[in-house]
Write a protein that binds this DNA or RNA. Structure first.
Lengths: 121, 121
DNA sequence: GGAATAATTGAACAATTGTTCATATATTAA
DNA sequence: TTAATATATGAACAATTGTTCAATTATTCC
């Protein structure tokens, strides 16, 4: 029998034990902020397009990404900065061309899991 | 040898074949928007806390989530609506108490992949 | 019925976001 | 050196977001 769940003499239905137990397992404020920021980096259509393109082709320059998505180099460059800051992409400069790719296999996994979810909904 | 990559007579370094090939694989505008929205649903610290709490305890009422996180019922209720709209959580109403839980195993997987990424960075 | 509790909702507000446009920096070619 | 190309960046703008506060709805207890 779970405490607090059934009608009882308490003023509220708060399940104190559950609250206590989960509270103990909670991570730091900083952790949740960083986790949220990671998801946020993937939360814009332009950025999901960029990530998808990179997941298909592995390495692309700014100009090509803009051509694929059909927008300006500037918009792509701004978004790549966001992805760079959140360490979702890495880059390799060759002459005046910067080639971008997904940072590591974890990003591929995380993104693939999102793809799978959307494809199945 | 990759076309367009080495110095050539073209005016630009755009790799036309790559662009063409990735363009062909691109999903619809709608798909990328929905994918972005899914990640966006997980892109706020309060919401990552809610999802984390639900991943630890499986079923929690609004009041308990607010107690765990340390904020108001109203703020939690607003955020739960966002999560409900994006089908990340489902609910089960018992009397005047609404119990929330993660919608399906895919949400658990997606969130767990995010956790793993952050824990390893 | 009336009081209390749980949750939801709407309005309002500051804060953040993503794009565009113009400009700047860096590299290459002539 | 000068012109062209590739990318990056700063300012500005509308649009969106997350919280708070107050009010509302729904249910239970007396």
């Amino acid at each position: 029998m779970k405490e607090g769940r059934s009608v009882n003499n308490a003023k509220t239905f708060i399940e104190k034990e559950k609250v206590k137990s989960v509270k103990k397992k909670m991570k730091t404020e900083r952790f949740f902020h960083y986790l949220a920021e990671t998801f946020r980096a993937m939360s814009d259509p332009t950025r999901t397009k960029i990530i998808y393109a990179l997941s298909e082709e592995n390495e692309l320059c700014v100009h090509d990404i803009a051509a694929i998505i059909g927008t300006t180099n500037s918009a792509i460059s701004h978004q790549l900065r966001t992805l760079r800051n959140m360490k979702l992409v890495k880059y390799n400069k060759v002459g005046r061309v910067t080639f971008y790719s997904l940072d590591d296999i974890h990003i591929n996994n995380l993104f693939a899991e999102g793809l799978r979810h959307v494809e199945e909904k």
